[in-house]
Design a protein around this nucleic acid. Structure first.
Lengths: 270, 270
DNA sequence: CGTTATGTTGAGCTCCCTCAAGGTTGGTGG
DNA sequence: CCACCAACCTTGAGGGAGCTCAACATAACG
């Protein structure tokens, strides 16, 4: 039972600390080599900014020409509903990319807001162009975009056909898995722990249930699987049990790039 | 009140009939020029195949290296749930592109199945590479990918926070709009008509309600907005009323590429 | 002209929402 | 160190939107 960051670094000793979460994931799971990883790290160290909880990282309605990478903290992508409420449609964890659509200068239909304090690195259109010299990196970013699409579909399928307990369990398993990919989930006895700034309000909103029902649902999962979610920390004693309960299959998140995958995307997205 | 196809052709007289639905959309709404449109049309005429209702266009679990363009007919993308049921997570209409993730050789988490008889054109990885010589076309495809993401988010937000009648109305408005973009929705008195092979079972599944409730909901909309959905045809007398009822805003589908949008995606997705 | 898919309507039940009222925690200023 | 306040969490009770089960009607189809 060792620190997952060290594990990654040991497996690829060329990659120096501090490597950003994104770089760790791309090098560890998306087939990016150490050199490209280092280059990405230098880019991520430029243009960083800090966003206060509740402030927008990407505003609604305005066209953008840069994407953002979460360096630290959590953000939510939300959609304003007609009745004035806000619906969370996605969560962005450290090492993840916000609003791919911004690359095209597309007007956003959503806004992205910091949950706790977020540190984000902007990657400009100009810089993205330079990616042409690093094809594997470009492909990895595409991959990330497709993976976030898979997560979006999973959210829809769940809310469309699973009950409250299953949805909540599934979201928690998903978050654990996504953090796991960047070394943000630690072993804890038989189970797992990770920091998580989401309140029950956020968890409820993201899984389409009222705060009260979110609370009751979490209480049920606590009893059944030794789940504790409080004070910015989530502990899961019986992760395997929780995963079995909601039918969680990590495949749609990991989606390892290993085998197949010719160097196709050259040009496909020019 | 004239035929929308002729309108498009008249605006861009260089583009010969028969232009595929996709080409019409890209030239009419995504800033693709006539020359690129013609080239796309020739590509779409190669590698076409016909898929019987209920058969898979893209199978689950296998990695692919080509994308499909729907030339005619409707398809659904669905996800197998743990309880054995199938959840529709997306619909694919004529002129739309299926399973962008296939481009990366990614294993699919879903399967895409023909609803009525579908005619689809496969675009191989090799051909996609040639897109590098047609940057505006490549950008337009990216744009399509992002637009389908916006639709997916809208579906999620709706099922997460709107009631049955609103969800159903919104889906119908969305389908009308998407068909409108390819000239597949016709004027009909004050309202609109379009062919639609979806049964109430499909409509219910896609909007997360039982068949029976879908039926009751459609009956309500028929009374309120003069909606008829039967026998493969949908008629909407009071489209404006229906749109207002569900707060439909076409912006997230049209997402016109007009203004901003530098020729960024070069390389960003290599 | 039977057979199968689809559409229609009714009745009871359940999951989850809403409203309401505490309880707990953590941060802030005195 | 304590008082206070604002989030956040917790629990209860009642109601309603939509599900399930069960018929039956109608349309599509060979």
């Amino acid at each position: 039972m060792h620190d997952p960051v060290d594990t990654l670094v040991n497996e690829r000793p060329i990659l120096p600390k501090p490597a950003s979460f994104l770089t760790r994931k791309l090098v560890g799971h998306r087939g990016v080599n150490a050199e490209d990883g280092r280059w990405l790290d230098t880019i991520l160290q430029r243009n960083q900014r800090s966003v206060e909880p509740g402030s927008a990282l990407v505003e609604l309605g305005a066209p953008h020409s840069e994407i953002h990478v979460i360096v630290g903290g959590w953000a939510m992508r939300r959609k304003k509903m007609r009745d004035g409420s806000n619906q969370i449609v996605a969560l962005h964890l450290p090492g993840e990319i916000c609003e791919f659509n911004a690359v095209l200068g597309m007007v956003s239909d959503t806004e992205t807001v910091a949950i706790d304090r977020v540190r984000a690195a902007a990657i400009s259109a100009r810089t993205l162009n330079e990616l042409s010299t690093h094809p594997r990196l470009g492909r990895a970013l595409w991959w990330e975009s497709m993976a976030s699409g898979a997560i979006q579909r999973q959210w829809f399928a769940n809310v469309a056909s699973a009950n409250a307990a299953t949805r909540m369990a599934h979201l928690l398993c998903e978050l654990e898995q996504r953090l796991h990919l960047v070394g943000g989930s630690q072993a804890h006895g038989e189970g797992r722990v990770f920091t998580c700034p989401l309140t029950q309000m956020h968890l409820g909103n993201a899984t389409a249930m009222s705060v009260e029902h979110a609370n009751r649902t979490l209480a049920q999962l606590r009893r059944q699987f030794g789940l504790r979610a409080k004070g910015g920390l989530i502990e899961i004693d019986d992760l395997a049990g929780l995963q079995a309960f909601c039918g969680f299959d990590p495949g749609y998140i990991v989606l390892d790039a290993k085998s197949h995958a010719p160097s196709i995307m050259h040009g496909a997205a020019r």
